[in-house]
């Protein structure tokens, strides 16, 4: 089923990363070649885009994502985003992108304090970003969440700016699992190339192993952008 596009998408592994293998599988299933990037790498190996996957980078010591932002690969990544490199941060990856300052706001302890692991309905809000063009505006998708610190917070001005500029990527529907402000599940940067979300699209690329294949659209969207670019 897979159509090889020739695109190469890097997948970062920090010590403590869990979901790099699933992210690589999702990249392959979407039709790109996954390229493993190690946290100590000073070189992104010329990839066309990067996924920062979920897990517990550096044991979540200090704060989730706080140590990862100082890793050599993140230094390269931040520089490359300035040149337009598309980046998707998933779960811990989203936390890393916020800590790095690539995305505004922060992820804090779930309002209910419990770790939440369930299939979660989301509504696609922004369908023009590099990672979301395959979704119809307002489409509802079912994608797993699994996190203990996924409550998205930012000051009111930042939240208003995200809303007014259409940078809310997905919103939780049918129940907010973590107390995120304004039910925000994911956001993008101003250019729409850097995106982050707490739910796990890479766990929803195959109905055999996930609730749906609704997550595949994020990877296909990026490939559309890369192939036509």
């Amino acid at each position: 089923m897979t159509v090889a596009t020739g695109a190469r998408i890097g997948v970062v592994t920090f010590p403590g990363t869990l979901d790099d293998v699933d992210a690589q599988r999702a990249v392959r299933r979407a039709g790109a070649e996954p390229v493993a990037l190690w946290h100590g790498d000073h070189d992104l190996q010329g990839v066309d885009a990067v996924v920062v996957p979920g897990g517990f980078s550096y044991g979540d010591y200090l704060r989730c994502g706080a140590i990862a932002k100082y890793s050599p690969v993140m230094t390269e990544l931040v520089l490359a985003t300035g040149r337009g490199l598309p980046v998707l941060g998933i779960c811990n990856g989203f936390q890393v992108l916020c800590e790095s300052g690539l995305l505004p706001g922060a992820l804090t302890r779930n309002a209910g304090l419990h770790y939440v692991c369930r299939d979660q309905w989301l509504r696609a809000e922004n369908t023009t970003s590099t990672w979301s063009t395959r979704y119809e505006p307002g489409a509802e998708v079912l994608i797993p969440v699994k996190h203990g610190e996924g409550s998205y917070v930012a000051d009111e001005d930042t939240l208003d700016e995200l809303e007014s500029s259409g940078r809310v990527l997905f919103r939780y529907v049918g129940g907010n699992p973590n107390g995120s402000r304004r039910d925000i599940a994911g956001i993008t940067d101003t250019a729409g190339r850097v995106a982050g979300l707490m739910p796990h699209p890479e766990h929803a690329v195959d109905p055999l192993t996930g609730p749906t294949d609704d997550g595949l659209g994020m990877f296909l969207s990026a490939l559309d952008a890369l192939v036509t670019a």
């Binding site: 804090t108 302890r109 779930n110 309002a111 209910g112 304090l113 409550s151 917070v153 000051d155 107390g179």
Partner: peptide, 14 residues
């Protein structure tokens, strides 16, 4: 310390 306007569910639980 968490900012005053940031929800602190751990403190609330205590």
């Amino acid at each position: 310390m968490p900012k005053q306007e940031i929800l602190d569910p751990q403190g609330q639980a205590v």
